[in-house]
């Protein structure tokens, strides 16, 4: 991945976090950012392991055959729900419609802000679909985005970002497909 693309991804994450900041009405900062290419075989381990329970928000990038996936540990997702609804979920395995909707909105908003920055930097249109919220084994919910990665190659960029307020930080991981089209535009 080129330095230019990495810089653009960093900017896109910053934009996503500032979107989240506006949504929760608090100043949220990025404390750590890392982007790396990961082999398909190892991607689920970036999300805690193929059998780890995670909460994933999946968006399709319209007209580009692209995908965006944001994964959180259940505790992080529970914190987000508590922060936005004022009440903790009873069970992460059986989220209510409202709880799913809140997570979907967070994913939607962060996805839109992320894609807007990416689109601006790459000079291309990137519009997200409505979100799908999934709670299951990391391996299982990554199957769909990773099946598209395998159609083109055998590795994909993963972004890890730690963000929050000085006293409370959370980590989210982002998987975006495809990057080749974006790389071509930024080279």
């Amino acid at each position: 991945m080129t330095a230019k693309t990495t810089k653009l991804m960093n900017k896109a994450i910053s934009n996503a976090i500032s979107g989240l900041s506006g949504m929760v009405g608090k100043e949220i900062q990025i404390f750590a950012f890392d982007i790396k290419n990961v082999k398909v075989r190892n991607v689920a381990y970036e999300f805690g392991g193929p059998e780890s329970l995670i909460v994933g928000v999946y968006l399709q990038i319209k007209g580009r055959a692209g995908h965006m996936f944001v994964g959180y540990e259940p505790k992080v997702a529970a914190d987000l729900i508590t922060m936005l609804l004022g009440q903790a979920p009873v069970s992460m395995l059986q989220l209510s419609e409202m709880e799913q909707s809140v997570l979907g909105e967070v994913g939607n908003l962060m996805g839109s802000f992320f894609l807007n920055a990416l689109a601006e930097g790459a000079g291309m249109s990137l519009l997200p679909s409505p979100p799908a919220v999934m709670v299951d084994m990391a391996g299982a919910i990554l199957d769909v985005p990773l099946s598209h990665v395998l159609e083109q190659g055998d590795e994909t960029p993963i972004i890890a970002a730690r963000f929050g307020t000085p006293d409370k930080q959370i980590e989210g991981k982002f998987l975006i497909v495809p990057i080749p089209a974006i790389e071509e535009k930024t080279d």
């Binding site: 399709q60 409505p130 799908a132 769909v144």
Partner: peptide
């Protein structure tokens, strides 16, 4: 071959299973 999400608007993406 599971369909992990039944969210609407994905044009059969999750029917790949």
């Amino acid at each position: 071959g599971a369909r992990i999400s039944t969210a609407p608007g994905f044009d059969g993406t999750f029917k790949i299973g």
